[in-house]
Write a protein that binds this DNA or RNA. Structure first.
Lengths: 182, 182
DNA sequence: ATTAAGATACCGTCCAGACGGTCTGATGTC
DNA sequence: GACATCAGACCGTCTGGACGGTATCTTAAT
């Protein structure tokens, strides 16, 4: 039987989903408490009950996104054989596998967060962590970094210009994976 | 002797520089008409005399940035010998040569613009143009795209985590240039 | 089982501040 | 005097968030 706590979690998720939807459909400029609340079908007071401030809402949004991406990486990492470039290949696949909607949302999210110094710090930390992992992956440092950069830009580009057609997409994926060998 | 028009141009430039400075020092959130005007040592009325709206100011900012980057590319393109990968090498050098301040400003600018659909369209157009040029550069399409992606991400990363140390920077530059051959 | 008491979830109104932009003038320059 | 260049008060709107209230559920004592 669903308890109150369960329903609270559900409401939180609904609000998070609404915020994501608002960003995707209307851009970060319309990410206001009123808009999010209305989209979620909940009052502003209700929203503020679950997220003490707009900042808290965005923080939760960021964490959700980062966790999802990390989860993708872990998943692909398990599937890759133990060899130099293993982590990078997992990173590449995670980048290419992510859903378009998530891509877009994540990017727009980063954009909207970029104005908040606290969030930038957080993203920096993640980046440094990825950087360290890439450098320990058994490939020359410059090569490893460039591969990671290219994957990141693929992600950004997908948001800006849409996912490329399938032949180009798989060609990019293949080329990136190829660069992790040698 | 400076004419009326010259002084107007000077004021415009001063306002643009002030806007750049505001973005760099305080982030896009503080890019308000009042702040820009105050930073430039000009009243809000004065600002709005030269830029009819905040949108117009940002438009001018974007154009200034894109023109500067394009200028860098052209410059390096002239210096590169005619051979496959010529344009990409110019693109890479332009990315790596840009001043840190410009990097940061350009990036933050794009961020702040990202909310405005009209600006996104503009940036998309530039991206597609670069994409076309990269694909006509005599290299395999996937390779060319990946190189451009990596250069873009270098630029973004420099903003996020600062310019890497000199050995890493030149290693990245070398590796990228190396990828334009073969 | 009932009920009192308290916690939790949610609602809707109100307010203060920030922001973009208008408007009226002042000042200098040709 | 006409025009370009600024100054700065002012206005309407939007937004984050505070606040007081209500309803629903949990807990525990009877």
């Amino acid at each position: 039987m669903p308890t109150k706590l369960d329903s609270a979690q559900q409401t939180r998720a609904k609000l998070l989903a609404a915020a994501t939807e608002v960003i995707r459909a209307q851009g970060t400029q319309h990410l206001t408490l009123d808009t999010v609340a209305k989209t979620a079908g909940i009052s502003k007071g209700g929203l503020l009950h679950h997220f003490a401030s707009k900042n808290a809402l965005m923080q939760a949004l960021l964490e959700q996104f980062l966790n999802r991406f990390q989860h993708f990486i872990d998943q692909y990492y398990q599937q890759e054989p133990l060899a130099p470039g293993r982590w990078l290949r997992a990173y590449i696949r995670a980048t290419f596998a992510d859903e378009p909607a998530d891509l877009e949302t994540g990017w727009l999210l980063l954009i909207s967060l970029a104005e908040e110094p606290a969030f930038i710090t957080q993203v920096q930390a993640i980046y440094r962590q990825f950087d360290a992992l890439a450098l320990q992956d058994g490939l020359p440092a410059a090569r490893a970094t460039i591969i990671r950069f290219a994957a990141d830009a693929y992600w950004i580009n997908s948001w800006l210009n849409g996912i490329p057609n399938e032949t180009m997409r798989s060609a990019l994926l293949d080329e990136l994976l190829r660069l992790t060998h040698l």
